[in-house]
Design a protein around this nucleic acid. Structure first.
Lengths: 148, 148
DNA sequence: CCTTGACTTCGAGTGCGCTCGAACCTGTAG
DNA sequence: CTACAGGTTCGAGCGCACTCGAAGTCAAGG
């Protein structure tokens, strides 16, 4: 499988695949006669796993640690396992945090009365949301910077 | 409250507070005689809310939209509500995805036998993890780039 | 009077994870 | 033969969200 095909099948861009190889996330791919990368389909499951790590928020430098252990092969299982366990714990904590935030968001949304369903405006400011409590400050100041 | 105190109480750095004001996430703070920012304690709940949005992965440009609506005051409730609902849906989807990933991680970890508890090395490679399946590729290539 | 420390503005720098473009090579189809 | 679709390497650039440093102001304490 050449790089374009792998890109199609894996969902990574060709650029990203080469980038991943360069930094060591993907093993150095063997090249054919004209030095084009030739991939085995088995790489797909590794990429899928990398995607899992990525979507769960693992930084690349940690994926690199795992990838290096994998490259080293057997004898590194305990370490890989420990790495994943630590990551799993972080993900669990993150899920817990997100769930708490969901409750907070639900409450906040409920605070903004229903839009058509019941009434138009009720007790929004009871939840918090009081931006204008201060004195008359500079009204028309430029005050934008980046904010693209 | 001066900026240093707000930094202490909010957990943001002084630099970040000024940055947030500059881009419009925090309202322009009134200044005292020597043009030092003077904050009302009520800003703390707004910062706490911003933190919620941030920890749930909302990009700053979206927080800016919300902040702008808040600044405009009443009449923007429906829009704010819609914004939060859309965000909540994304967070929910993310939680679902993370939970699926947790299952995958659990399975992967289980694949790496127990470290002391049962045996030392069992059926790791059945799960996937076969880095070395190819031909003899360049063994000692430089191949590091960034990877800080 | 002088130091200290907290504040001010401004613009530049950082770390991450890509993303892109330039310049070049190669195999196949028309 | 030529065009073209793919591939190659290399280094530069980008978007995000800060983070920092320089140079200056100001009020209170010794």
């Amino acid at each position: 499988m050449k790089i374009g095909e792998l890109a199609r099948q894996s969902g990574l861009s060709v650029h990203t695949i080469r980038y991943y190889e360069k930094i060591g996330l993907l093993p150095y791919a063997s090249r054919d006669l004209s030095s084009q990368r030739d991939y085995d389909a088995s790489i797909l499951s590794w990429i899928a796993f990398l995607r899992r790590l990525k979507t769960t928020g693992m930084p690349i430098r940690d994926m690199l640690r795992y990838a290096a252990l994998r490259e080293r092969g057997s004898g590194t299982e305990a370490e890989r396992r420990a790495l994943l366990k630590a990551h799993r714990d972080r993900v669990r904590a993150q899920v817990t945090e997100l769930q708490a935030s969901l409750l907070a968001l639900d409450a906040k949304i409920a605070g903004y009365a229903a839009p058509q369903e019941t009434s138009q405006q009720t007790c929004q400011e009871r939840i918090d949301d009081a931006a204008h409590s201060g004195r008359g400050r500079e009204p028309a100041r430029a005050r934008q910077a980046r904010a693209r």
